Amino acid sequence: MNRIIGSRTFDFDRQVAVMAIINRTPDSFFDKGATFALDRAVDAALAAAAAGADWVDIGGVPFGRGDPVSLAEEIDRVVPVIAAIHARSDVVISVDTTNAEVARRSIEAGASVINDTSGFSDADMARVVSESSATLVITHSNGVPRSEPQSPQYDDVVAEVVDYLRARVELAEAAGIPRDRLVIDPGHDLNKNTLHTLEITRRLQEVAAIGLPTLAAVSNKDFIGEAIDREQGQRQSGSIAAAVICIMNGARIVRMHDVPAAVDAVRLTEAVLGFRQPAYARHNV
């Protein structure tokens, strides 16, 4: 499953990509605005690339509850960061947005992936992506971004996620986006409780069986904290474990906060799966 994304080529049959999270927001659930300043966001992205991240995901509006962010403000938050990174690195750049105009402006600035956590709820999103060379991440989500979470109900959460993703893939292809520019994401914790997300993680092979590269966005999420009783800031080990479990079950992209730890975990998992040779082999040789 070879993919050209931006200026890089990925063989997702034998490779796992590490996506670093860069939030240019004052109210991110994890970093609390640590990379809200433009220079800090750019520096964090370049540092992530230097630490081994294959791509960086730039977000200007958190998915969770909060005050609305205007179109102009979201563009001002993400586009300058994308342009600055694109000018200084060949790292793949994605923009985490649900807005088609933000996606269009981001692509013009150098983004090669649109990471839409709403399942392209914006009617223009598919058209914008189809008219570009960008890749689209299709995420399972039944909720409204920036709204109060509801109590989600599923008869079979994995089956419903798979059906939703298959339907959205068909819509994307009908809009002119070729299959080789699509990625799927089951939406860990998005409109799902901890038991739902644990089941998705356990049965992720059913999602990966759709046949498209599967993204697992698990880093520091609430299902980890609730599963092992850890508050924010204490979930690194759980995040790494969740990422590895997802990879073993078919994920080929993991979206992570702690890039050095994630890169080490991913490279070791690739070696265990036989995707790569050890960096060296001297022990008992």
Results as ranks from 00 to 15, higher is better:
residue 2 N to M: 13
residue 3 R to A: 11
residue 4 I to F: 02
residue 11 D to W: 10
residue 12 F to A: 05
residue 16 V to L: 04
residue 28 S to N: 09
residue 28 S to K: 10
residue 29 F to I: 07
residue 32 K to A: 06
residue 35 T to N: 11
residue 35 T to P: 09
residue 38 L to Q: 00
residue 38 L to A: 03
residue 45 A to I: 07
residue 45 A to F: 06
residue 47 A to M: 00
residue 52 G to K: 09
residue 59 G to A: 07
residue 59 G to S: 06
residue 66 G to Y: 04
residue 69 V to R: 08
residue 76 D to H: 13
residue 77 R to W: 06
residue 78 V to G: 05
residue 93 I to D: 03
residue 93 I to E: 00
residue 101 E to S: 01
residue 103 A to D: 00
residue 107 I to D: 03
residue 112 S to K: 03
residue 113 V to W: 10
residue 118 S to Q: 04
residue 121 S to V: 14
residue 122 D to S: 12
residue 123 A to L: 10
residue 124 D to P: 05
residue 128 V to Y: 01
residue 132 S to R: 07
residue 137 V to M: 02
residue 137 V to E: 07
residue 143 G to S: 13
residue 151 S to P: 09
residue 153 Q to H: 14
residue 153 Q to C: 12
residue 156 D to N: 10
residue 159 A to E: 12
residue 161 V to L: 05
residue 163 D to K: 14
residue 165 L to V: 14
residue 166 R to E: 10
residue 169 V to L: 10
residue 172 A to F: 08
residue 173 E to K: 11
residue 174 A to P: 12
residue 181 R to M: 06
residue 186 P to W: 00
residue 187 G to M: 00
residue 188 H to D: 02
residue 191 N to K: 04
residue 192 K to H: 11
residue 193 N to P: 04
residue 194 T to R: 09
residue 198 L to Q: 00
residue 198 L to I: 15
residue 205 Q to Y: 12
residue 212 L to W: 10
residue 216 A to D: 04
residue 220 N to Q: 14
residue 221 K to P: 02
residue 227 A to D: 05
residue 228 I to S: 06
residue 228 I to D: 03
residue 230 R to L: 12
residue 231 E to M: 12
residue 234 Q to A: 15
residue 235 R to P: 06
residue 235 R to G: 00
residue 244 V to D: 02
residue 247 I to W: 02
residue 249 N to W: 02
residue 252 R to F: 08
residue 256 M to H: 05
residue 257 H to S: 07
residue 258 D to N: 15
residue 259 V to H: 09
residue 264 D to N: 15
residue 267 R to N: 08
residue 268 L to N: 14
residue 269 T to R: 05
residue 273 L to A: 01
residue 275 F to S: 01
residue 276 R to C: 03
residue 277 Q to C: 01
